[in-house]
């Protein structure tokens, strides 16, 4: 754990615009877990986290409820909140779920397609293909998949996706190097299948793409563990 005063001063953990205190806490905790500063089985240091984000303990408790629902930790009565491992299996499971849920979105989008929707998707897919920088990939990808989900018009799906905030903090495509290329190939395959009205191929494109993303993330995490053990934290 970094010293909290330093973290609060750096302002990275503090709530951003449009973010509630609880959301800022949840984001901070996810990052601590992803960075290996909070380890599997460790108890969440609630006071320290409140200080680091610069909030009271109430939003910390709210964040814990969301984080438990998202599968990051479990709460034991009167004992506190304990971190679940973010190991290879957890990463693989999460991306497998993404693959399946967005695959389902693509399938429903084919079944519930409108003429305007079809045109919009073609335009957005072309923008993904043209994107050069990591931030351009992030934005165009979000717009494309957002459109697929909106054409799928499934309130149940939207609820599930809302409950799955990203496990990799920051811009995924900047943090995980090969991911932009994987996503561009995958979105192109998904769009080709959707345009052809092929539900199975659209679903498969999504599942395959997220399987590759999971492998890229696992590789990055493994590499990071080898090169910079989190125990060498200079702030510790």
């Amino acid at each position: 754990m970094p010293t909290s005063a330093a973290a609060a001063r750096s302002g990275k953990a503090a709530p951003r615009d449009g973010e509630t205190s609880a959301e800022a806490v949840a984001r901070h905790v996810r990052k601590l877990i992803f960075d290996g500063r909070l380890k599997a089985g460790q108890r969440l240091p609630q006071d320290e986290i409140a200080r680091a984000v610069g909030v009271s303990r109430i939003p910390v408790r709210e964040a814990i409820i969301s984080l438990e629902r998202e599968g990051w930790l479990r709460v034991e009565n009167h004992r506190g909140a304990f971190v679940y491992p973010l190991d290879e299996q957890a990463v693989a499971d999460r991306f497998a779920l993404y693959g399946r849920f967005y695959g389902f979105a693509a399938r429903r989008a084919v079944e519930r397609m409108t003429p305007e929707g079809g045109e919009a998707l073609a335009t957005l897919a072309a923008e993904v293909a043209r994107a050069r920088s990591a931030s351009a990939v992030e934005q165009t990808n979000a717009r494309y998949l957002g459109k697929v989900v909106s054409i799928a018009a499934s309130s149940r799906l939207s609820a599930v996706l809302r409950s799955m905030p990203p496990i990799v903090p920051g811009n995924f495509f900047a943090v995980v190097k090969p991911s932009a290329a994987i996503q561009k190939t995958g979105i192109a395959a998904m769009q080709a299948a959707i345009a052809a009205g092929d539900t199975e191929a659209a679903e498969r494109a999504s599942v395959d793409m997220q399987t590759e993303q999971a492998e890229a993330v696992i590789e990055m995490m493994t590499l990071r563990r080898q090169t910079q053990p989190p125990d060498d934290d200079p702030d510790a």
Partner: peptide, 13 residues
């Protein structure tokens, strides 16, 4: 299956 994230996804539905 031992996956907190799978259980989490079921809680939402």
């Amino acid at each position: 299956s031992d996956s907190p994230r799978l259980r989490a996804a079921l809680l939402v539905t």
